[in-house]
Design a protein around this nucleic acid. Structure first.
Lengths: 344, 344
DNA sequence: GGGGTTGATGAAAGCGTTTTCATCCGTTAG
DNA sequence: CTAACGGATGAAAACGCTTTCATCAACCCC
């Protein structure tokens, strides 16, 4: 079918060993020989069979990308970033989605993975630190994104500070009844972002002398629908909020729509701040916490490839990076309806 | 390091051939033997090395997913669909993004691909039918998505009919000056969707006795920004439209924002219909043409796996499926500002 | 009972690379 | 002039599977 290394060797009148060396740019090949081999290879349109070479070299030249799902804005952006830098280096990327709760176990049981990938970017780490530790112990190069674990480099956000910033913006505008739309109620993963964001929310309230009202903290599932349902619940409360901090822009968008359908003006009657800076947020004028998701994906890939590089694995200390976030004030936040009423 | 097939063979006191057969569920293995092998394998936590097995079996057990990019809503959804069904069958999916114009050539030159994947889902086919034909000729199982090519099964939309439907909705409401926000001006790919949608647009106008005004057809690049810029241009025209058909929801969203910023009410002063039914569209009340992108991805994967299945490759006639679309009337379309004026 | 089946098994030949190790030869140092 | 050296090369042994082919026993039907 297609040319093998032997065909090239024959065409260039050298041994397969020399072809292998010449083609991979290894030293100790005479320049004239290398040229001859290169010519023969391109003449025959030879490309090394990846499986054969990976078997022989005992490296898969593949990095796995494990994430809870793909198809959401956040994960797609992340994927995009990772893929871009990984592909540029000749590695393959093997996506692995662990949808649902069983997915995580599947992931761990799928030890084929261990033989398939040289390294792994684990996103939103729906894994126990122990489990991650086991992976590291098993010799898989690992970078985590969204959760910090001591054994491996990570990229995270200062979620608490970011949330504090968002909510302070709200208190600064005079809001006293501020709701938070957060993660999933019965967290099947111990995903820390929603927890940390909730802490930042509490921080900011406390700083403004406000006691958090449990009725104002509702789960939103990080989805449009979840945000909408959450808002529904908030509006049904006896004393509805004048402002909402949604832990993702998608939830914010869903929530805003419900609010507007209920006749509330945003920001006139209700202020809304989101988290992410989703592509559409700029067009909706959503005030939000901006983060560069694609950039984080790229960075994670770079870290991983660094680990994989012949030189990198050794002495380097595992680095924990905190990606920057900032508050983007647009047009969905403003003073509460009757600010003075709240202060008497 | 980790157990090999020989270890299992030894542990079960059989030959490696028998282990291979037993583990893969091949016939002609005594039940008792199979049980013994299974036990030994699970005891040793044995998993076949994928590279070795792929090399020996001469199948990569991988399907490639070639798309112009990842990170947009549309492509992420597609990916999600493909990945879900492919992963369920034990195949790997290898994403290949051909960003930019050079990407396509890279894709074609990357014949490693041919040795790496058993089949390919090509999305939005930024390839010449000739090039696709060559791929098919080279023995790669192929399914195209978004463009139809005779040599391979495909999943497409009836873009023309869908656009006709969208624009008819507008003419039906009484609009006469209807703009279209379409694809990229100097189409580096000969991507047919925008072209067909434009045809449908013209169809609908003609049916209503309207002569298309070239000034009302502007490119939008299928992005939020592009949609915004397009709207900018439309508003600057001497005789602005009262309705806009955007070839994607993202463009519609960008355009709507610009329109609203310019003081226009939607749908009071301007009607807007999009295409896709993006996740957020429901929450924005955007009237649009709905398509099930994830479903199309799933279907494409099924077709491809069917081709790959031992039985499937042979006699089956290549099928061209047309995924359904329908008009979803929400709240961004209404009669033109002064309908009667238009009919004098 | 004997020849033909049939099913279970193992030996061994690939699959297409990489990599080790030995060889060969032209240089350089002594 | 010889010995040691180092760079270029090839032979061959992995790498860890799959698959063909041969073997062997048990079985079946006149």
């Amino acid at each position: 079918m297609s040319a093998s290394i032997e065909d090239v060797a024959r065409a260039a009148s050298v041994s397969v060993a020399t072809v292998s060396r010449a083609l991979r740019g290894l030293p100790n090949v005479a320049p004239s020989t290398r040229a001859r081999v290169l010519a023969a290879a391109s003449e025959l349109r030879y490309v090394a069979d990846p499986h054969a070479s990976r078997l022989a070299a005992r490296r898969s030249l593949t990095v796995g990308l494990a994430l809870p799902m793909i198809g959401t804005w956040y994960h797609a952006k992340l994927f995009s970033g990772v893929e871009a830098v990984v592909a540029a280096t000749g590695y393959d990327v093997l996506p692995f989605t662990m949808t649902g709760t069983g997915g995580v176990d599947r992931f761990l049981e799928d030890l084929p993975f261990r033989k398939r990938v040289d390294g792994l970017v684990v996103v939103d780490a729906p894994l126990h630190p122990d489990q991650l530790g086991r992976l590291v112990g098993a010799g898989v190069a690992l970078v985590t994104l969204g959760l910090r674990c001591e054994q491996a480099p990570s990229i995270t956000l200062d979620n608490r500070a970011a949330a504090r910033l968002a909510v302070s913006h709200l208190t600064g505008l005079g809001h006293r009844r501020i709701a938070i739309i957060g993660g999933v109620p019965d967290d099947p993963f111990r995903f820390s972002a929603p927890v940390d964001r909730h802490r930042g929310y509490v921080d900011a309230l406390s700083a403004a002398g406000i006691t958090p009202d449990p009725a104002l903290a509702v789960p939103g599932n990080f989805s449009l629908e979840g945000g909408a349902e959450a808002m529904q619940r908030l509006l049904g409360a006896s004393d509805p909020p004048t402002a909402v901090f949604a832990c993702s822009d998608e939830m914010a968008i869903g929530a805003m729509q419900v609010a507007r359908d209920a006749g509330l003006r945003v920001p006139g009657d209700l202020s809304m701040v989101g988290f992410d800076d989703h592509d559409v947020s700029a067009y909706l004028g959503l005030t939000t916490i901006r983060q560069d998701v694609t950039g984080q994906g790229e960075r994670a890939a770079q870290l991983l490839l660094g680990l994989l590089a012949p030189t990198g694995g050794g002495g380097a200390v595992t680095v924990h990076e905190v990606a920057p976030t900032r508050l983007l004030v647009r047009h969905t936040t403003g003073p509460p309806p009757h600010p003075t009423d709240q202060f008497d």
